[in-house]
């Protein structure tokens, strides 16, 4: 299967929409000073994102997938400048992100869709005002043109212009997520960070939202950074895929190539762990262990306690990413040809 894959380049066009190089983010999770001093313990840090690099070509979707605590939401926040990375650079359209954020003309071109449509809409604002806020902030329209634009946006996401008069509580989860998308689109962005946009929704509603997001991407040429824990959703949405484990990307490349021939043991674990609708009654391969505490990550390759292929080198030495047929994989076993 894998031989048929063309060695696709990971970094594609000359000016990617978003480019991360060696991005690391560390949270300070120490106890308060007094308690720390009394207990004589050092500061404790949590490395949520560790030496992350990728780039997203214009008009495509890059997805990050992983289990809870792997750092995918931190990447989402870093990518729109809600947090500053401790190390590394993030470039938006070739400009450093902090510079880009300082210019309204560039800042309006990026936006975010959040997971929980109940928490991300102000309950005291009418939908019309929620959607209009970015338009007013960036001065994209004035007077009655604002209202026209809001109406057009609501129509675009499958709501009616009259819905603008209502408050968020009058909508179902799926409709609220449509409002979130309308708000995200109101500043006419080109780049959207979508952090688990459908995981709070039922599957039939999820299908509506995913279809809408794909339609909008085609029509408006949007670029997505798509964060999800659901591999099937990611398969449906992505051009490129990065699999994260404890803050690091363990496998990255064209989504079709990874799904056709997953290489890293963790990617295989994730795929094997999914229930199979095509063969009811078939048991999943159950894998032992859970994601370890990121405050004290295992030595060497952080996946080694759960990995069947782990040996002494995996426990001691951190694997670097190596390219294999267009896919980047960080695994000693694959490098040494121990993986079957």
């Amino acid at each position: 299967m894998s031989e048929a894959l063309a060695p696709a380049a990971i970094v594609v066009t000359t000016a990617p929409m978003l480019e991360l190089a060696g991005v690391t983010h560390v949270f300070d999770v120490s106890r308060p000073w007094l308690q720390r001093t009394l207990a004589r313990e050092p500061r404790r840090t949590l490395r949520a994102v560790d030496d992350l690099s990728f780039s997203i070509p214009r008009g495509t979707t890059l997805s990050l997938v992983g289990e809870s605590g792997c750092g995918k939401s931190t990447v989402a926040r870093l990518s729109v400048g809600l947090m500053e990375p401790a190390r590394g650079t993030i470039r938006f359209e070739g400009e450093p992100l902090s510079t880009a954020r300082a210019q309204p003309a560039l800042r309006r071109r990026m936006n975010m869709i959040f997971q929980d449509p109940y928490a991300s809409l102000n309950p005291r604002w009418r939908v019309r005002d929620i959607v209009a806020e970015p338009i007013r902030t960036f001065g994209l329209a004035h007077g009655s043109a604002v209202q026209e634009r809001v109406d057009a946006l609501l129509t675009q996401v499958g709501l009616a212009p009259q819905d603008g008069e209502k408050f968020p509580h009058a909508f179902s989860g799926g409709q609220r997520q449509r409002v979130s998308i309308a708000r995200a689109l109101s500043s006419a962005p080109e780049f959207l960070v979508c952090d688990e946009p459908t995981s709070a929704l039922d599957v039939s509603v999820q299908a509506q939202i995913l279809n809408l997001m794909k339609d909008l991407q085609q029509r408006l040429g949007l670029t997505y950074l798509f964060i999800s824990h659901n591999l099937a959703v990611v398969r449906h949405m992505s051009d490129q895929l990065g699999v994260m484990y404890l803050g690091r990307i363990v496998e990255m490349g064209p989504a079709d190539a990874i799904f056709a021939a997953p290489r890293h043991p963790y990617t295989r674990l994730l795929l094997d762990a999914l229930p199979d609708l095509a063969h009811p009654g078939r048991s999943r391969t159950s894998v032992g262990g859970e994601v370890p505490n990121p405050i004290r990550p295992p030595s060497g390759c952080t996946f080694h306690p759960r990995c069947k292929l782990a040996n002494a080198r995996c426990r001691a030495e951190r694997p670097e990413q190596i390219a294999a047929e267009g896919v980047l994989v960080a695994c000693h076993a694959i490098e040494e040809g121990r993986a079957s």
Binding site: V203, A207, Q208, K214, F259
Partner: peptide
């Protein structure tokens, strides 16, 4: 039909309109 599948990739998921 609205469940995305790992086996094959479709351009659009089947959706049930409304709620």
């Amino acid at each position: 039909g609205s469940i995305p599948s790992l086996e094959q990739r479709v351009a659009r998921l089947r959706q049930i309109d409304g709620a």
